[in-house]
């Protein structure tokens, strides 16, 4: 028998600190698989966010920089400008990319920086204990929206991917999800495309992943995936945005 599915080389074979059923582990693996398949491990420089994925560099076996909360795209911009031959990507959560780092996100996108952005949208702040994120859905209960998010009080879920797609500097935006193995395979294709775009100097590419946070959604792992499929995708429709 041949091994048909194995651990990617670019992912260290250690247990992560993520909760059971957390989507970060899948996203980390898909990126590592992509890096292996494109043969770019020795050229890749990752920029990790502040949030649950802050120590992503412990798991990926390639060069990595930590960035201050929200500043990943400013850090990545400079790394790529200094080293245009390296492949530079950021890995950011919804709070990092769409709240505290909105300015850096929009302007790096608008400059058309030749970067790849992997955006994990789980509609919540995981690391700090389940507070409202910019992408938290209406009625969704969080630590800071104990009665559910209300539009009149908290505003609406922020569709940053759609906003970014309006910018001339942005070349590729796709929203994918992890609610089933088939969806994970689709997500992988989008991630690969976003890396290929950088290799081909296409410009700013972003993949938004609807990813589960069972712990702070108060759901089982499977219920979380079903919630993405049945509820989250209504607010954040899947597919190519640009």
């Amino acid at each position: 028998m041949n091994k048909v599915f194995s651990h990617p080389k670019s992912l260290r074979n250690i247990a992560t600190h993520y909760c059971a059923g957390c989507g970060h582990g899948i996203a980390h693996r898909l990126i590592a698989e992509t890096v292996d398949e494109l043969g770019i491990r020795e050229k890749v420089i990752a920029v990790a966010p502040v949030g649950c994925a802050v120590i992503a560099y412990e798991y990926w076996d390639f060069d990595c920089s930590e960035a201050a909360h929200g500043r990943a795209l400013a850090v990545a911009t400079a790394i790529k400008r200094v080293r245009p031959d390296n492949i530079v990507f950021t890995y950011q959560g919804d709070g990092d990319l769409a709240a505290i780092g909105t300015n850096e996100t929009i302007h790096a996108a608008n400059r058309g920086e030749n970067l790849t952005v992997i955006f994990i949208n789980n509609a919540i702040y995981g690391m700090t204990g389940g507070q409202m994120a910019p992408t938290t859905l209406l009625k969704q209960k969080t630590a800071t929206t104990p009665n559910g998010r209300e539009a009149s009080f908290h505003g609406y879920p922020l569709k940053i991917s759609e906003m970014l797609a309006l910018l001339a500097g942005v070349k590729y935006v796709e929203r994918v999800s992890f609610f089933s193995p088939q969806q994970v395979i689709k997500a992988k294709q989008a991630i690969k495309q976003a890396f290929l775009n950088q290799i081909n100097n296409t410009g700013f590419s972003l993949v938004e992943i609807l990813s589960p946070c069972p712990t702070y959604w108060g759901k089982s792992s499977k219920e979380s995936l079903d919630w993405i499929r049945d509820v989250m995708t209504k607010e954040f429709p899947l597919g190519r945005i640009k």
């Binding site: 960035a67 201050a68 500043r71 400013a74 850090v75 990545a76 911009t77 400079a78 200094v82 300015n103």
Partner: peptide, 15 residues
């Protein structure tokens, strides 16, 4: 904020 974090990135990249 972006400027100083760009400096962080450029320096991390060796410049």
């Amino acid at each position: 904020l972006a400027a100083i974090n760009m400096v962080y990135g450029a320096s991390a990249a060796g410049a």
